[in-house]
Design a protein around this nucleic acid. Structure first.
Length: 524
RNA sequence: GCGGGUGUAGCUCAGUGGUAGAGCACUUCCUUGCCAAGGAAGAUGUCGCGCGUUCGAAUCGCGUCACCCGCUCCA
């Protein structure tokens, strides 16, 4: 591993992602769209491999889980029932003095005298304003402190530094006692803006000629994939005759209007989730939450993220959603910090109960054996696709010093993806491109492999450069066709090729007939 | 949202008011040869965007967009 700070490492990763075609910024030629990203040719293969493998392990190789693919446009009533409309937003207030942004519902109520002003002026320059401002005088502060804060505000409000704060004259001072007010910044007593609701959902209107003011036309881009599973739970169980415990899986996009997207693709406004809602009897919920945690950790190991790079956070009650009895966060050690990849949450019967209540449709389950009727509980392992792709990229990125053949060393950049995740599985190269026999044979090898895996065929330039280019793409294998393949020098080598392994750079002579079974075994 | 930084060729970057640059990558060709090899030739720019100052702006000012770092936020 190279000796570089984490920020430097992350910059190199972002740079490689663009250079090699993993991830581009959305709308880049128009200056970019904040918090939105496009996947390039290598990125889309990587992402697809991840989703396909998750689907295979979670749905196809199990008898107790079925899949759905729900719509992104979501009926507003669903999100009212789930608590996202109204609840999925944070009231925010800004400090008028420092412009700090605060959660209005988390401000400590304060009491004390409030100094209010109707405006301010600076006689010498003829400047004045009738903008009002107030300051809460906190415990132990005198009147001059409140006036100083007010002068700071007006000085800043004036926007020019040609006069000093102390020269500003405050106008229309009045003092009034308040109790338990959340309208003032606890840090400095300055007045806050009115709390504003920041709705984190993207709203849209359904119907081409929808009336702007028709409340029934409002729909939302889903903020999580889970709700379509809950709302179709009845249809799925009726049409498949599944018995508890069973799960419904989904992979799909979700949208949140994040206040502050950060860390490359980590916090995006448009992102993809892979999740299961696993329905069970109430008494099994806690046990299954632990079982799912173990299964999910195993999954990460299978895609090349070792256990020691993962952290499991047993989310304390105060940080859990109110309906959750138990939540584990599976976190990965990204270069920018330890951050969540997946949440395994025991959501109790909250969601189905809410939808039963709001829709008036029964969501209960009748157990034939025990003759009990109850609303199933739910365990939800919900993973971020884009976050996992980013973790795969960060985990794979490596720089190593290799001998340059001239007595010195040079840096080799190599993406050490697990072969089953690698965007391209094998590179096929004729040693020289100006020899038709080599090129023809190499194309035959490409055609042999291409129906079974992603193959990159490259005949341009020096062979070493072609190998290194594939190292940056994370291609685990390279196959080179040379004159021995044609049987020119030694008849015993006819029909063999060089198989080069990415991580060790070792080479091996392999008969073409053995290539396909060997590679298939290595990438499955 | 606040504060700081950055934005010039595909990539990494140089260029402090006077003709737009380098290295690498890329394209074509040569090479019986395997780890960014050697040689020859070639193409590549809204200097993030807008407005302003100026005879003249990549360079100075204002605004704006995006990314990075710290804070804040993260149902």
């Amino acid at each position: 591993m190279a000796h570089s700070t984490d920020a430097e490492r992350m910059e190199k990763i972002v740079s490689l992602c663009k250079r090699r075609g993993f991830i581009f910024q959305a709308g880049e030629i128009y200056g970019g769209l904040n918090g939105v990203w496009d996947y390039g040719p290598l990125g889309v293969e990587l992402k697809r491999n991840l989703k396909d493998y998750w689907w295979r392990r979670t749905v196809q190789q199990r008898d107790d889980i079925v899949g759905i693919d729900g719509s992104i446009l979501t009926h507003q009533a669903i999100l009212v029932a789930s608590g996202h409309v109204g609840g999925f937003s944070d009231p925010m207030s800004d400090c008028l003095l420092t412009r700090a942004r605060l959660r209005a519902d988390q401000i400590e109520p304060q009491s004390g005298p409030v100094h209010s002003y109707t405006g301010a002026r600076h006689e010498a320059s003829g400047w004045s304003t009738s903008r009002s401002f107030s300051v809460l005088r906190r415990q132990g502060e005198d009147e001059n402190k409140a006036r100083k804060t007010a002068r700071q505000f007006y000085h800043q409000f004036r926007g020019s530094h040609d006069i000093g704060e102390k020269e500003i004259e405050l106008l229309g001072e009045s003092v009034e006692e308040v109790t338990d007010s959340t309208r003032f910044n606890p840090a400095n007593g300055a007045l806050l803006t009115e709390p504003r609701e920041f709705n984190l959902m993207f709203q849209t209107k359904v119907g081409a000629s929808a009336d702007e003011n028709d409340p029934n036309a409002v729909a939302y881009l889903r903020p999580e994939t889970a709700q379509s599973i809950f709302t179709q739970y009845r249809n799925v169980s009726d049409s498949t005759r599944v018995k508890l415990p069973f799960g419904i899986a989904q992979v799909g996009k979700a949208f949140r209007n994040e206040i502050n997207p950060r860390n490359f693709t980590f916090r995006s406004r448009e992102f993809e989730q892979m999740e299961v809602e696993y329905f069970c009897r109430p008494e099994d919920g806690l046990r299954l939450t632990d079982e799912w945690l173990e299964q999910r950790l195993k999954f990460y190991e299978e895609i090349g993220i070792p256990r020691d790079q993962l952290h499991v956070l047993d989310v304390p009650e105060k940080d859990r959603a109110h309906y959750s009895k138990k939540t584990y966060d599976i976190e990965y050690a990204f270069p920018f910090g330890i951050q969540e990849l997946e949440g395994v949450a025991y959501r109790t019967d909250y969601d189905l109960s809410k939808h039963q209540q709001h829709s008036g449709r029964p969501m209960d389950y009748f157990d034939d054996q025990t003759k009990e009727r109850f609303i199933p509980h739910v365990v939800e392992p919900s993973a971020g696709v884009d976050r996992t792709v980013l973790a795969l990229i960060c985990q794979a990125y490596d720089e190593e010093q290799v001998d340059d053949g001239k007595g010195g060393s040079e840096t080799r950049i190599v993406m050490r993806f697990a072969p089953r995740m690698a965007p391209v599985k094998v590179g096929v190269f004729p040693l020289l491109k100006n020899k038709p026999a080599l090129v023809g044979k190499a194309r035959e090898v490409r055609d042999l492999l291409q129906p079974f895996m992603t193959v990159f065929y490259d005949e341009a330039g020096a062979i070493g450069r072609r190998y290194r280019r594939q190292d940056e793409a994370g291609t685990p294998f390279g196959v080179t066709i040379d004159f021995d393949t044609l049987g020119e020098n030694d008849p015993a080598l006819k029909g063999t090729v060089t198989l080069r392994e990415r991580d060790s750079m070792s080479q091996q002579r392999v008969p073409i007939d053995e290539l396909l079974p060997r590679l298939l075994e290595a990438i499955r």
